[in-house]
């Protein structure tokens, strides 16, 4: 059992959850993830570490509400227990002095990329951040990123900020105006794919953090296997950081949505049978 310290909605559909994890916090590194289970019937869901606090003995993850298990997670409150919080899992992100690194992220990935950006800054890199959202009210952790970024860009399709476009277009502009040595991209599969495609012709090293469905998270099952270059890799133990120019994106797109119909069935069942009828005074 692991205790929930805090859970709050950051922006519509995206929540952060802070969990007491005194063992994990001592060893976790940027780019690693944990597996959570919201209750005994839930799925084991991998979530990137978005932050941690050694003094509080806690880790923080940011997640988007997609299926039943994330719905359940989004209803947890301070003091609740969850049956599974295991980690840290996966290889840490490669952190060293690369020069200028651009961190491009969207939705839950904004949280997931934060500790990597912070570590890159601490390692002496010039860090630029590009955050993508459909609309201005979906941006979060702006202050945190501004604090560690030498330059901070936003792309949103509502034109609220400086750029009104989807991330690859803005990314191309940023790449044109700045000398970038390395790009890290975390977000939905499409975002990571488009970022990788944008940098491919420019030959800029681009690393993505992949998030296929996992079960055990320790290399035992192979649910998260995908083709990278010529070989099949397990995202849970060989990754989650991979060279975006070598990933077989087509395969990953299909893998990501392979349980789409089941996810809908599961949600319908949960809405009908198990969803709490009354929303109590919940901290939003």
């Amino acid at each position: 059992m692991a205790k929930i310290i805090d859970r709050k909605r950051l922006v519509p559909n995206i929540h952060m959850i802070e969990i007491s994890a005194p063992d994990i916090v001592k060893r976790c590194k940027p780019g690693q993830f944990v597996i959570l289970m919201p209750d005994e019937k839930g799925e084991r869901i991998p979530l990137s570490l978005a932050d941690w606090d050694e003094k509080r003995g806690s880790i923080t993850c940011v997640f988007m509400v997609v299926g039943t298990s994330t719905q359940k997670l989004s209803r947890l409150r301070s003091g609740d227990d969850i049956p599974v919080c295991v980690g840290p899992l996966g290889k840490p992100a490669e952190i060293s002095k690369f020069g200028t690194v651009l961190c491009a992220a969207g939705c839950y990935g904004i949280g997931a990329i934060y500790p990597i950006a912070r570590a890159l800054k601490q390692a002496g890199n010039t860090v630029m951040t590009l955050v993508d959202a459909k609309a201005n009210y979906l941006i979060y952790w702006e202050d945190r990123f501004k604090e560690i970024s030498d330059k901070y860009f936003v792309s949103s399709r509502d034109g609220f900020f400086d750029c009104k476009d989807y991330i690859p277009k803005v990314l191309k502009d940023v790449l044109k105006d700045n000398k970038i040595d390395r790009v890290i991209s975390i977000g939905c599969t499409y975002l990571m794919y488009t970022c990788s495609e944008a940098t491919r012709p420019l030959n800029i090293d681009t690393y993505v953090h992949l998030n296929p469905i996992m079960v055990d998270g320790t290399g035992m099952c192979g649910a998260c296997r995908l083709k990278v270059g010529d070989s099949t890799q397990f995202a849970c133990v060989d990754g989650p950081e991979f060279d975006g120019h070598l990933v077989d994106w087509n395969e990953l797109f299909y893998r990501r949505k392979s349980y789409f119909n089941d996810e809908i069935r599961s949600l319908c069942y949960w809405e009908r049978e198990e969803k709490p009828r009354k929303m109590t005074k919940e901290k939003r």
Partner: peptide, 12 residues
């Protein structure tokens, strides 16, 4: 994960 009892259990 008891997928044989899906959707009572979340894992398909």
């Amino acid at each position: 994960m008891r997928a044989n009892q899906f959707p009572k259990y979340d894992t398909p």
